[in-house]
Design a protein around this nucleic acid. Sequence first.
DNA 1: TACCAGGAGAAAA
DNA 2: TTTTCTCATGGT
Length: 218
Amino acid sequence: MKTPLSLAAAFDRLLAAYGTQSWWPADSAFEVMVGAILTQNTAWVNVEKALVRLREAVAFEAHAIAALAPDVLAAAIRPAGYFNVKARRLQAFCAWLQAQGGIEGLAERPTAQLRADMLAVHGVGPETADDMLLYALERPVFVVDAYTRRIFARLGLLSGEESYEEIRALFEGDLPARADLFKEYHALIVTHGKGVCRPRPRCEACCLQSDCAHGVRG
DNA sequence: TACCAGGAGAAAA
DNA sequence: TTTTCTCATGGT
């Protein structure tokens, strides 16, 4: 009988297979935050195109984006898809950030309170808030995404029916509360998910199984 | 052509 | 309260 893979052991296998990922791909905390909204249900390659166009259209600062005409902003971020929706969300977030005194104004806030405040902003759901908290603000919160559900459900560590918060609590309760660990773990999950753990997997043995044919072996 | 991508909010049941 | 629908471009 197989012993279930622990979350720590899964991390070790992913790290051994893919190496250090060093996420998030951004030059500043603010760019992480903007990217977190633009990447909602969207491939990162399209987000990069939108970020380039956004920088060409407006000063890359919260007050400037918040003040931009909505149709101009939507046109700029068009490659990221859902451009009308994301323009509205981006402006809501930028207005909120500006009201907080910018990123510096968030520094002293307790993580739980800050997370609750971020979730109250239009367009900021659990994953987006946690992306921002972890990768922009270095807070030790675990980011749960579709890849996390899929991969760990296939491993038998999740049923697939758990809520976002239940999965987050599972990882945060089972791993040391270290932002560097959580950043690397989530990045490795996405890398693995984009590689072999597709919705319809290329082989039934992928996803960290001991007989995996894709390099992530025990 | 169909599927999928680092979700979230609104509307309907 | 829970489930379903809508938003949309671009690569494979």
